[in-house]
Every structure is written in structure tokens, then in C-alpha cells.
Design a protein around this nucleic acid. Structure first.
Lengths: 359, 359
DNA sequence: CTGTTAGCGCTTTCAA
DNA sequence: TTGAAAGCGCTAACAG
């Protein structure tokens, strides 16, 4: 195979063009183009011959030329953000891999954006600059929030995009994929109830976080339904230290918590640190659960019970969503709410610590 | 600013082209192009006027057109790999951010590659397919090893590339950036020696790993120089479970280890689990050090002493290296060996546990 | 120092 | 059903 390089001098990267294929197949360039983009316009025999030649020469359409002509680069843009050192990796790693895998499977490539700092102004500027330079087919946004400027900007430019994070403004025209934090926290709460806990605290995020509120409500509902007290709760920033301090408060309460359901692995790890400082054994004296199944959760001892987001499905659905948008699918944009999986590890189990690690 | 949209109907993404700038500035398209690419060919006055117009209209050159013309896309390709769940995030997250930031600063964009599985055959195919579709300016490879097929392939295609990971074949024509694992492990060993330890084991990677060998040698040298025994060593795969088992072995030895220097955070976390199982306190009874400063290291209790790779510098240097290559810099390709920083946390300190978290 | 010409590889007209 | 012409936006090579 790959027999085209026959004494023609240094062919860079084996550049094969449409017209070379055409020449070889004895047809016009246009027919080759049609074979690839509008196969039904060709006679079956011609089509077959052209396709064979395409395969023989290993031809791949030049993206730049296509982009120039079609104003479509087959590129999907995504902004990577700095991983904060004090946080359990919010699975960006995994997410990016999943997103890219699906993008490539759909014939796209991921192009990365950069914006300094946290503000959306910088990010929007980065998007705009990129759009000026190249006709990006779609954007994928992560971590949406209420009144998200980025959503407004992209919409005003008419660029297709989908978000990892639901529309918090009740905006049905947004294509989004999200994970059900409420159901997840509820599952975690029910799990510790099943372990016999009745005094269950919640270490959650600040009230301005929509995600945090969702997760808090899952805990609230589960407790209320069972007539359990809900007075032990904290609304703090997502740092280890905040989790640690919240835990100390709830363990210093007149009627201390025996289980702490947290809004994130980071907070849960702070709780574990507090337990460590007090000489309390996770799972045995105090059950702890996190959220995200960050790599850390499986690596601490004992392992941290947490909620795993089906991140590969998220990636697939996001690509699916932008594909539909790009194709101009007239149907309502997709809204996909996925269920997280409760991963039970030692931090919430009173039983004897398993002597082998999680397989 | 941005006053160009004056009743001209729906201008998509504010498309401004070279000729529009030329028209507005009253010069030819070529002069605008020169203003941007060969400013010295223009009269200062003309240059200034053109640049002013460029700024006024917010013009950005179309990458596809440039790529088509120049065979240079201003794209740098990088393959993301799946993060393995049993590993402390190998800082890919951070690395990608750093690499992208530097790429963007240098006027490039990162485009992601995908290859299923671990084999380099798939990866090479992905590179090749990408090259057929678009004239990627350079590649960045991570995790090089001896006889790396990818290096051979890229070289045979004549594409510029740089690697995160040195040339293990003693190949001086390779541009690489790496972190000194030997010096790092040595620093960790010397640190535990300074804490009074004399019986120091090493939990390292299998012998086929060049990186692992480097790290092992740092420990070996430090011990030998001080006349300390080096009989406690393990060469295992990089998993939590392997680290755990190795730790148990070294603690079951007739003269058990009092300190364990590990080749990775993952292994160190396995060691911590073993200590946990035996009721030994990290730092107090047995000192433990890792390597990588993965997010997990700061989050476990006590914190894990480890070696931080200067990942932002790595990213910057890699981009620098490919920039030089792209520019056809005749000098020897860059070889950059960076020093990791020892981050001391509770896992190697016998002293009283600090009551507040690391700031 | 500045402008004209041509063409990178592709696909949307439109004609044959 | 197939082909010819034109042009997407840019820049290298040449004239002027």
C-alpha cells in the first residue's frame, strides 16, 4: 500500500490533491468532490472508481481549502482552564479526552482556546479572536452559570455551541448536557442513611452557585423525607480548608454529625483532614461522601465514597448536540440530564476495612 | 471602537478581509500583507496608516487562507491520552494548560489528536491523517521512551516537533524538555536523611522505564554516598496496589524501612494505604515521599511530600523549541533539563502535625 | 517603496 | 450525469 511515491522527488507529507485523484481516475476534479460530498449525483460506476482511487492514493481533503471555500473548518473550540492546585482535579483531563474522542469520531478536531484569569470578558475576547481567524464550527463551554455572558456572546454571533452545565436561566433554546447533582447528593445521603446514620450534615458550596444549590437540595430532600434534622449545613467556597473548618464546626456541635455529605471531593478531603486531626476514623466514626470521583478519591486511604459523572457520555452528547446544531437540525436543542453513579468506598463504610485496594 | 458595522446588513462574525483593509487605507492588498508580515518593506508613514486601519477594523488574518497559501496553519498538534483512573493525575491537565498558554502567546493554537489505546501505531496514524488534512506546523510529544516510533515517524516526514521527555537514545538532534528525576529523587532521599532516617527504601518503576531508572539512581547515589543500605527496593508497575504491596514487603523486612522514597505519587499513595492498614502514622513512624505533586498530594492527610515539576516552564520551553525549529533556526536543537522542587508536607515530617492546611 | 498577477485546493454555480 | 469557470483570502514573485 501507499505506492504513490514513485520517483517523483521529495513529496512533502505525501500531499495528494483532489485534482491528482481526478487525473488518476480520469474524471474532473468536480466529480471527485461530488463523490465525497454528494455521492448520489454520480453514476454508481464512476463513484466506485473514484472512491477506489481516493483510497489508493490515501487522499484526504485539505481542511484549509475547504474552510476557505465553505467557511467551515471542522474545528470545535474549547477553552482549557488552569487546574487550581487546591482542588481535586475536576476531571477536566478525562473530559477533554472524552470530548476529543467524540469530536474526532464525528470528523471534527478540537482546538484549544486560552484566556488568562477567570473572567468571562477575557474568554469572550478569546472566542472572538479565534472566530476572526478561523471559521470554527462550534464551541463547547464548561461550567455555565446564571446570566452567563459567554452564552449571550456566542448566541449574538450566531455560532453553534453546547454547554456542559444546564441552562440556569430556564432558557430552552440552549443545547446542554449536565449531570443530576440533586439526584447524586440524594443517593449519597440515602446511602449513609442505610449505614444507620441519622445525624447527617452537608458541606456545600456558597448560595450563589447553582450547582451547589442543586446538590444541597438533594441532601435536604432526602433528610426531610425521613424526618431527619437538616440544621447541620455549611455554605462555603470549594477548598480543602473550607471543608476542613466546616467539618470541625459540625463535629463540635452539641449533637455532632455522624455523617457528612459534601458537594465536592475537595470539600470531602477537607473533611477527611479534620477527622484525621481529631483522630476519628472515616467510615467508622464519621461517614464521608464527596462528589466527582476525582482521581484522588480512589487514592486516599480509606477510599472516598463519591459520585462519578459519566464523563464519556457527556462528551459524546455534547458533540452530538453541536453536530445537530451545525447540521441545522430544526428540532429543539438537546437537553440531556445524566445520572451520576454512587461509588462506595471505605469513607462511608463502618465495616472492616478491606485489606486489598479497590480492583 | 468597532465602528465598521454601519448599516451593511448582517456581517457574519465581523468578517474583515485584507482587501477591505486595503481599500479603506487606500493601498493595495499586498501592502497590507506586507505591513503585517514584512513591515520593513513599507514607508513608515504607509505602515503606520495601514496598521491604524487594521486596528480600526479589528482585522485578523484568515488562518485558512494563510494555511492554504503558506502551507502553515499556525497549529501545533498534541495527543491527549486517557487519564487512568488508578493514577494520581499525571498533571496532563496542568501541562495542557501551560502548553496552550505558551502556544497562544506565540501566535499558535493547539489542536488535539486522538488515538485509541496505548500503541504508538495508532498514534502515528493519527498524526499522519492530521498532516494530510492540514499543514500542522509542529507536534509536541509527551512521555518518550527508548526507540520511540513516533520520533522516527515525525522525523521521516520532516515535521518539526519537540518532546516532553529527553532523548533516551542519546540522539542529540532531538529537541526535548525534561525534568531531572535523578536530582529530584536524590533531593527527596536527602530530605528524609535529614529527618534522621537511615533505613530508606525505594519503591520504583519496572526496569524498562527509563524515567524510573533515573529516579531510582537518584536514591541509590544519595544512599551510597552516605554509606546507607540499598537493599530495600522494589521495581513495580505504577499503580496504587503495587505501591501498597511493596510497602508491606519493606515493612515486613527483618530490618524494616523507616522511610520510603517513591518514584511517583501513585506509588506513594499506595504506601500511605499500607501504613494506614498497619496503623502506622506517615511521617511519624515512616516517612513517605512521592513524585509529581499531583493534585492529590496536597489533598491527602497528612499531605504528601513530593517533587513538583515546573510544568509551566516545560510548556514554555517546548513551544520555544518548536518555534526555533519552525523558524529553521540553524542552532542545535534545544535540550532543557529542569529541576523539580521538593515540596515538603506532613508525610515526611515527624514533628507535630500542623493544625492548618498548607496555605 | 508599491501594485499587479497568479494560484494554493476546494466547491458552488451554471452549462453541456 | 459530468465538466468548466470562478472565487473563497491570502502572499510569493515579479514589475513598475
Amino acid at each position: 500500500m501507499e505506492s504513490q511515491h514513485v520517483s517523483r522527488g521529495p513529496v512533502p507529507h505525501g500531499h495528494v490533491t483532489l485534482s491528482q485523484v481526478a487525473q488518476r481516475a480520469g474524471v474532473s476534479a468536480q466529480s471527485v468532490s461530488n463523490a465525497l460530498n454528494n455521492p448520489d449525483r454520480l453514476a454508481p460506476a464512476t463513484l466506485e472508481r473514484i472512491l477506489a482511487t481516493v483510497a489508493e492514493l490515501g487522499y484526504e481533503p485539505n481542511l484549509s481549502a475547504r474552510a476557505l471555500r465553505n467557511r467551515s473548518s471542522h474545528l470545535i473550540a474549547f477553552k482549557v482552564r488552569p487546574s487550581r492546585p487546591d482542588k481535586a482535579s475536576l476531571l477536566m483531563d478525562e473530559f477533554l479526552y472524552a470530548l476529543n474522542r467524540s469530536a474526532v469520531a464525528a470528523g471534527y478536531h478540537l482546538i484549544l482556546c486560552h484566556a488568562e484569569g477567570e473572567g468571562s470578558t477575557e474568554e469572550i475576547k478569546a472566542y472572538r479572536d479565534l472566530l476572526k481567524k478561523t471559521p470554527v464550527d462550534a464551541f463547547v463551554l464548561a461550567e455555565t452559570h446564571r446570566n452567563d455572558d459567554r452564552v449571550a456572546a456566542l448566541r449574538s454571533w450566531g455560532v453553534p455551541f453546547a454547554t456542559f452545565g444546564r441552562s440556569w436561566d430556564g432558557d430552552d433554546s440552549l443545547a446542554w448536557v449536565d449531570v443530576d447533582g440533586r439526584a447524586g447528593t440524594r443517593a449519597a445521603t440515602e446511602h449513609v442513611v442505610a449505614q444507620g446514620h441519622r445525624r447527617i450534615g452537608h458541606v456545600g458550596w456558597l448560595a450563589e452557585s447553582e450547582i451547589g444549590q442543586e446538590r444541597r437540595e438533594g441532601w435536604l430532600e432526602a433528610c426531610r423525607e425521613r424526618g431527619l434534622p437538616t440544621d447541620l449545613q455549611a455554605a462555603v467556597a470549594d477548598t480543602l480548608e473550607d471543608g476542613r473548618q466546616a467539618a470541625h464546626r459540625m463535629l463540635d456541635a452539641p449533637e455532632p454529625a455522624t455523617a457528612l455529605v459534601c458537594a465536592s471531593d475537595t470539600l470531602a478531603l477537607g473533611v477527611l483532614r479534620a477527622l484525621h486531626e481529631r483522630g476519628l476514623r472515616p467510615g467508622v466514626e464519621v461517614a464521608v461522601t464527596g462528589f466527582d470521583d476525582s482521581p484522588t478519591a480512589a487514592l486516599v486511604s480509606p477510599g472516598l465514597t463519591t459520585l462519578r459523572q459519566p464523563i464519556d457520555v457527556v462528551g459524546r452528547q455534547l458533540i452530538q448536540a453541536v453536530e445537530n446544531l451545525i447540521a441545522g437540525d430544526p428540532r429543539e436543542p438537546q437537553h440531556v440530564l445524566l445520572q451520576p453513579d454512587l461509588i462506595v468506598r471505605g469513607s462511608s463504610l463502618p465495616g472492616p476495612r478491606p485489606s486489598t485496594a479497590t480492583p
